[in-house]
Amino acid sequence: MNEVLIYALVTLAMLGTVLAVILYFVAQKFKVIEDPRIDAVDEALPKANCGGCGYPGCRNFAEVSVKSADEHKNLDGLNCPVGGNDVMKQVAAILGLEVAEKDPMIAVVRCNGSKANSPAKLQYDGPSTCAFAQNLFAGEGGCPHGCLGLGDCVVSCDFDALHMDPETGLPVVNDKCVACGACVKACPRGIIEMRLKGRKDKRIYVCCINEEKGGPAKKNCVVACIGCSKCFKVCPHDAIVMNNNLAYIDDEKCKLCRKCVEECPTNSIHELNFPPRKPKAEPAEAASVKEKSVGAGVETATEAKNNQSEPLA
């Protein structure tokens, strides 16, 4: 009995030793020498692997950062939107560099063609993917630029920052958004834009991307931008540009004065997270809803609709 035990032990021990020696030499032979800074940078990154920086994953971003630091002595054009300034500072510190602060961004849905504003004239029956529906037809509400409401952006979001509002049929961005840009790529109509988050989350933007002329645009959606240029004329900061019957507010130039919001005849310019205005003709009810949205820091299309003083036609 003992003999068997000893044989087994000896065999195993010998096998172990031989294999260990082989492993050692193989490991030496195939050793990959890697810059330790890559590991360090990688460690500092959020590990979301979302691709928001434009590289396939955090590891790749770390490699590119190290390479850029070696070759150009800067990190220009490299930014981790998820980690934000804190992470980029850490990365820069590891690589012995400095980075300029970047203002945080957030995804903004530039369509307010809710079920009420752009009533469905057709019924789509098929797989729930915008990319396919986009090829098939203009949309249930008829607007060829508007949100199809099938949620490709929601599927693309790795951060649980988007959901579809069943009431309006539009996607809603919440404050979990890290501006990775996945939804911007996913939207076949280019409705979602990355905009500056703004001071205290205050944002003003044109909630429409329809480039049609006023008449056809308004036919499909009551809150469409009709390209009337009123906002363009009223803006004291030259922040608004008109292009193809569509107003666009440059978030770098906008000083959040809110003059354009009042001017817009179709209520397609939205303001978010502002304190309530002094009540003019505004019903008290709408103002209270707006207050709620200030606290939540969440934009929804319903609230945005309530922000508007004029009753909808």
Binding site: L136, F137, P144
Partner: peptide
């Protein structure tokens, strides 16, 4: 003109 798919 609006074509059969609703696009112009």
């Amino acid at each position: 003109a609006v074509d059969s798919s609703g696009y112009k």
